[in-house]
Write a protein that binds this DNA or RNA. Structure first.
Length: 134
DNA sequence: GCCAACGTTGGC
DNA sequence: GCCAACGTTGGC
C-alpha cells in the first residue's frame, strides 16, 4: 500500500467539492512525473488532498477507487486519470508552513519539488502528518 | 502581482 | 543532443 499527495487549487476543485461529488476522476495532469505517479497508484491507496495557491494546506484524505485509465479529457492515451473518493477531512489542516517547520518532513517533495502536482508520500511522513492533524 | 523554479519546445 | 527562450506553477 502506498501513500500519495494530490494538489488542487481550491477555486478550481476543492475538497468540499469532492465531498459533494462523492467521487471524481482526477483529470488535467499534463506532467510526465505526475502521470507516472498516477499510473503507479493501486486501488485502495490513500492520498492527501492539498490545497495550493489558497489555503496552502493538506485538508483531507482521499482513496484511490479505480486505477489509471486514459484521460477522457485528452487525445490518445498519453495522459491518465484515476478515480478517487473522499475518506475524511483532517480535523486540523496541516499547512505548508507547519511542514516546512518539521525537520522529519523536510525531504517531502512538497518542499523540495513544489511544482509536482501528484507526489509520493513515505509512510513515516504520512503518519507524522496524521499526528499533526490531531 | 511578482518572481523563482521547473518543464517543454524548437532552432541549430 | 544541446541549450536558449518561453510558458506554467505556486509560494510569497
Amino acid at each position: 500500500m502506498n501513500y500519495w499527495l494530490m494538489k488542487s487549487e481550491p477555486f478550481v476543485y476543492s475538497y468540499d467539492q469532492l465531498v459533494k461529488d462523492k467521487q471524481t476522476f482526477w483529470d488535467g495532469v499534463r506532467n510526465y512525473q505526475a502521470r507516472n505517479n498516477l499510473r503507479a497508484m493501486k486501488k485502495g491507496d490513500l492520498a492527501f488532498f492539498y490545497h495550493s495557491n489558497e489555503g496552502l494546506a493538506i485538508v483531507g484524505i482521499v482513496k484511490i477507487v479505480k486505477e489509471a485509465y486514459p484521460d477522457p479529457t485528452a487525445e490518445g492515451d498519453t495522459w491518465s486519470v484515476v478515480d478517487i473518493k473522499p475518506v475524511k477531512r483532517l480535523k486540523n489542516p496541516v499547512t505548508l508552513a507547519m511542514i516546512k517547520d518539521t525537520k522529519s518532513l523536510a525531504k517531502m517533495q512538497l518542499v523540495t519539488n513544489s511544482r509536482l502536482s501528484v507526489q509520493k508520500v513515505e509512510e513515516k511522513e504520512w503518519n507524522t502528518i496524521l499526528d499533526m492533524a490531531g
